[in-house]
Design a protein around this nucleic acid. Structure first.
Lengths: 239, 239
DNA sequence: GGGTCGCCTTGTCCTGGATCAAGGAATTCC
DNA sequence: GGAATTCCTTGATCCAGGACAAGGCGACCC
């Protein structure tokens, strides 16, 4: 149910505001933002709705306005590997714009979400006329590549405990006041770490026993970050 | 030891020929190719020479003229994960052009190699003037993304045997006459499959015992592709 | 209230594969 | 040529963690 906003009911501040906040478009002229807003489509998704599936032709690029989109990959064995969960202000699927073979992954709403769809044809046309926009796209894709490459690191870390520690340390940086709020269920986190929910539970339990963290519902409180880091380093050292 | 060719000793046919063969530049005008050739640097690498290392600032993008370049990632634990081995005609490191944080991986010559270095500044400038080149870069990066995403599939397949079968089936398509010639040592293949050389050896041994393949040095001969495929499907089915 | 459903936790079992070790084959070096 | 490496293979051991099962704890609905 994509709705194409007509100028009359378009809350321009909201739309261009979201566009401006996006890494991809910061610094663009108000005029260009207006052009983009002009052909942007607002799409609402219920929890678990698919935004797109692997192999589908690109409709355009996406910008999360609210909610969270789980971009994941289902391997030949049917196992789902979370690639990234995109939240408000983040853009994705730039790569597919120029890909003849469609999306390389699936995207599904983790929770009720609103995404801006910036259709393929007009944005490609604009890229053609705004070289700096092209460079920005390259930059954005390069950071996505970086994320993927970072995932390889995680997946090749043997221990689940080590991956967990790595994840905790990485996310506690960005977290408010020493607490990490989980985006999805613990099972999703387990998938992201490439393990089962049982093992995740045990691993968190062990850390809790040592008073390094405490877990309550979807909130993980970090009690002793230095100790976690030390533990991570020790685990890594034992190669 | 990068050598900057002067017009005099520059074999233009060789250079522009290589450029033209590259996916990235096919279809560009002779004039543009000439411009690119004009600032291209030829660099020779001995076996095991590093072309760049993680974190270094981008010098430009690379095009393999001969030999093979192993782009890999060393995770925090020191384990090396092969991302891809680039061979003649392939380009890489486009992503780093627009990245402020330098290369996200290491690149090392598997064997004596020659690469063309297309320096960052002039190629960025040219991209600014040739929007279609920008789109091509996007396309190229999107196919690299695809490769990475594909690697996730492999790494999340639990069995080494299954990953091996997957690899064999995938590569036998591209292989000449039912034989696959390994790019590097078996240890490198093991790394690519995310396992140890011992386990790889055992796995290949088991397949050999069943007369499905035979292994001789760096050549793997596929005897019964349908059986391999059936076995793969069976392994996957048991999820 | 009680029933249903999804999520999390804990217990038990068992296997795939990492690791160590050692011997053979193939390369490279002098 | 032989020595020195590096690579490959096979054997033996051992443990992380996946799979299954069962029980607890919400949340939601009627």
């Amino acid at each position: 149910m994509p709705t194409r906003p007509r100028p009359a009911d378009l809350k321009l501040t909201g739309l261009t505001g979201t566009l401006r906040c996006c890494q991809l478009f910061t610094g663009l002229s108000a005029e260009d933002l207006g052009i983009i807003a002009g052909f942007t489509i607002v799409q609402k998704l219920a929890k678990d709705d698919y935004l797109f599936r692997e192999g589908e032709q690109s409709r355009g690029l996406y910008l999360v306005q609210s909610g969270a989109i789980n971009v994941h990959r289902v391997n030949v064995a049917g196992k789902e590997q979370v690639i990234h969960i995109f939240r408000a202000g983040e853009s994705f699927a730039e790569a597919a714009l120029a890909s003849p073979t469609g999306y390389p992954a699936d995207a599904r709403a983790v929770e009720p979400s609103t995404v801006l769809v910036i259709p393929k044809a007009p944005i490609l046309e604009l890229i053609g006329r705004r070289p700096d926009l092209a460079l920005r796209m390259l930059g954005s894709m390069s950071s996505h590549l970086r994320v993927l490459v970072g995932m390889l690191d995680d997946l090749t870390l043997k221990d689940v405990e080590t991956r967990m520690l790595n994840w905790l340390v990485k996310h506690s940086r960005a977290a408010r006041g020493g607490s990490i709020h989980l985006p999805g269920t613990k099972r999703v986190l387990a998938a992201e770490l490439g393990t089962s929910s049982e093992t995740l539970s045990r691993t968190l339990g062990r850390l809790r026993d040592r008073k390094l963290i405490s877990v309550s519902g979807k909130v993980i409180a970090i009690h002793d970050l230095p100790a976690l880091q030390a533990m991570l380093r020790r685990n890594l050292g034992e190669t």
